[in-house]
Design a protein around this nucleic acid. Structure first.
Lengths: 209, 209
DNA sequence: GCTTGACCTGGCCACCTGGCCAAGTTAGGT
DNA sequence: ACCTAACTTGGCCAGGTGGCCAGGTCAAGC
């Protein structure tokens, strides 16, 4: 009779790839709970319920784990927001909705932001990983731009400086508010700031000709 | 005859306080050069030209060094900018000047930003240091608000939502642009973003009644 | 049944970390 | 000249780090 999942370690004979995935997830959990610095190979293996030796069977080095981690998208997924926006409503309301939804995601899991920041910084120091943060950012930017574009078509509007630049402006405010909030920890202040910027950025949204 | 400053270590008999200062500066240098994680007690002492033992004579623990480091203002000093702004010019020009000057400071010493970010993150994990980032931020905010207020009086203008909130809006954009730039590394994009926000924020500056 | 190759593991290694301390050196008061 | 208290130092420690590997286990193909 098979026993439940959380056994000591009943030797599972998994694919190296499957283990890599498990370790990556475990690493993310440890980093969120105890910080990036605390995510030692041993701590990660313990979290995943594996012996320490398993780590270097799956990854050639710890850097490889970092790379795998940065390849998974840790960023806030804004696409979940778009069902909530109303093409008929004024742009300012929709931008506010967008910002607020983003903010809910941040406060729901602030550690994700911290980890992403630290991981980015770490990658920039390692020559082999230097390209990854830029790639991550580009992907985030493109996803945001695609969402903005989709909305623009539904609402028959356009953005004064183009969709790509609008996405950049949105992400700038959003990550600025996040950075400051990590320092001061004042939820209301962050929300107020985002509301203000919803108003300001609405000036860049205009009806399609 | 006394020899020049950079000797091996000719026993200087300094005050504990003086050494603390030297170590703090050395730590900052190491952190900028090799990252916060690389700033071990040994590396810091080597940078300062002291034996390892000196560290724990000056600081009870490494945390105490972190505290001392966060107490010194690492932030960009915006006050140097204000001579360049012209009270007679339109607000948008002055905001652009402000943002650009900030940006020059950032690109001139990007590591300072990285170190500040990492140090903030580190402090948030240590219960004894948790308060410092908030304090740092408040001080930064107040300095910015004071500068904005001074300018407002010279130019006979006021800010739609008050000086304090204007300072918050400025810092949000400025730190957002910095965060993104650390990831993508595109100078021009960052400058363009800041210019756009200079225009948007100018809408919040109006003549004094 | 036996071989093969992928998977798995505990134990080991060299190195580095923050912290401590006994013994030595110095400047300054008396 | 002496004493005292502050300063200085090299060496040591216990614990933790990433990485490595010899040997063991297992499922599948022949």
């Amino acid at each position: 009779m098979e026993s439940a999942g959380t056994e000591p370690s009943p030797r599972k004979n998994l694919t190296a790839e499957a283990r890599r995935e498990l370790l990556t997830q475990a690493a993310l959990r440890v980093m969120k709970r105890d910080g990036v610095a605390a995510a030692t190979t041993r701590a990660i293996c313990a979290e995943a319920g594996m012996p320490h030796g398993a780590f270097h069977y799956c990854f050639r080095s710890k850097r490889e784990l970092y790379a795998a981690l940065l390849a998974t998208d840790i960023n806030v997924d804004l696409s979940a927001v778009w069902p909530a926006v109303d093409p008929a409503a004024p742009p300012v309301d929709n931008l506010r909705t967008l910002f607020r939804a983003y903010w809910e995601a941040v406060v729901a899991d602030p550690e994700a932001q911290r980890v992403l920041t630290d991981l980015t910084g770490l990658a920039l120091r390692e020559p082999e990983l230097r390209g990854l943060p830029a790639w991550e950012h580009r992907s985030y930017l493109e996803r945001t731009a695609a969402d903005l574009e989709r909305f623009a078509e539904q609402a028959h509007v356009e953005y004064a400086h183009g969709t790509a630049e609008m996405a950049d402006l949105v992400l700038t405010v959003v990550s600025g508010a996040t950075t400051l909030w990590l320092a001061h920890g004042d939820d209301d202040a962050a929300r107020r700031t985002l509301d203000r910027y919803a108003v300001l950025l609405a000036a860049l949204v205009r009806p399609r000709p």
